[in-house]
Design a binder for these strands. Sequence first.
DNA 1: AAGTTCCTCACATCATTATGTGGTCTAAAC
DNA 2: GTTTAGACCACATAATGATGTGAGGAACTT
Lengths: 216, 216
Amino acid sequence: METATRVLIYEDNVDLRTSLSQLLSGSVGMELAGALGNCTQAEADMKRLRPDVVLMDIDMPGCTGIEGLRRIKAIAPNINVVMLTVFEENDRVFDAICAGADGYLLKKTSPSRLLDAIGEVRAGGAPMTPAIARQVLRLFPKVPPRRPSEDSHANLSAREQEILGLLVEGYSYKMIAADRNISIDTVRSHIKKIYEKLHVRSMTEAVSKALREGLT
Amino acid sequence: METATRVLIYEDNVDLRTSLSQLLSGSVGMELAGALGNCTQAEADMKRLRPDVVLMDIDMPGCTGIEGLRRIKAIAPNINVVMLTVFEENDRVFDAICAGADGYLLKKTSPSRLLDAIGEVRAGGAPMTPAIARQVLRLFPKVPPRRPSEDSHANLSAREQEILGLLVEGYSYKMIAADRNISIDTVRSHIKKIYEKLHVRSMTEAVSKALREGLT
DNA sequence: AAGTTCCTCACATCATTATGTGGTCTAAAC
DNA sequence: GTTTAGACCACATAATGATGTGAGGAACTT
């Protein structure tokens, strides 16, 4: 038998907060873990109230919902956070998604849809309005500058990738040689091949390319 | 009065193709623009059949659905393409999203949901299964490793940021000096200060830090 | 068995970078 | 009106990186 889903609400508007609280209190399978007006104490709130799902208003005085989301995810990534907002604004969506939001709904969402969404997020889904979903998809192609159509990892051998990773970490030839117990000439030789494969001519170019194209 | 939505189907399995065709033909507001077994002639198909929405099987012999999607989006970005797949595989989802898919559904989707999805995509939504939606969100945070929390620019002066940017582009001291018409010793002097401020001791570390913390 | 790729190492030479110690000039801050 | 900070330049030395050539052994493919 499954236990009820503990839901914590962050919403600065008192009216909406109470109506959400009442909705959750009166729903089977749901348990109101709390209903707070700001998320300045998010970390402590998580420890104290132990929610499964957080409904987070994105516009709150003091500490924005995005910041709250970030802090919750930092200490408890398993808690599912669904953002609530009035508008489907592009910037906020992007920031929220990047901060690890698990869902994104409008405040005008119907009570039944909201309850569905909480179940959905618990089941591993990601409740979103259709328009938000489209925005997310549209944002995507812009971010990864690489089409992994063909040789995304540029055919680097395992060892070469490993050494490239160390370069990215700021290791010098000498440090790599010491770290991996190989000759510095071997390091040279690997790096030479890496340069050829990446079509670069210096460490900085290699590091830049590695980071930008996710070769790490 | 709105005209019917013209739907084109790419699906190599004959049975599924016919049943999808029948479903669409028998639905009000829908018009079957065509039903093809492969997308090798995608560009020509678009011109000839002029669909509003394409249902694209992701696994097809000859030309994969991803490739077909890419080609359609290249010549007609306004056509909405919904991918159909048997499994919710991570790699394919990623590729499809990056190629500009407008929706992503499972083949086992019910007829009514499929018709809903077509309407949704026309209305600017992005029909996805909950699990896919979650995957999309999960993929997101990995790409931009940004967290511009506080002193993101680490108190670099304008000139220093500028030079750091050139380092990231793979410029050598010499190239920077030539590019900005300053002495190479001045470049040294700036870079020395950049290192101090970033707490690094080499170009690669500086480049790595710059890219990771968005100092560009 | 031959061919290929990868990992390994060596030697040599030149170019570039790292670091230190100075210095001038200008503009803003105190 | 002195201090502070940034942009600019110079000289010197040590350390590191870039590039070429060559080569042996292991593992995998054909």
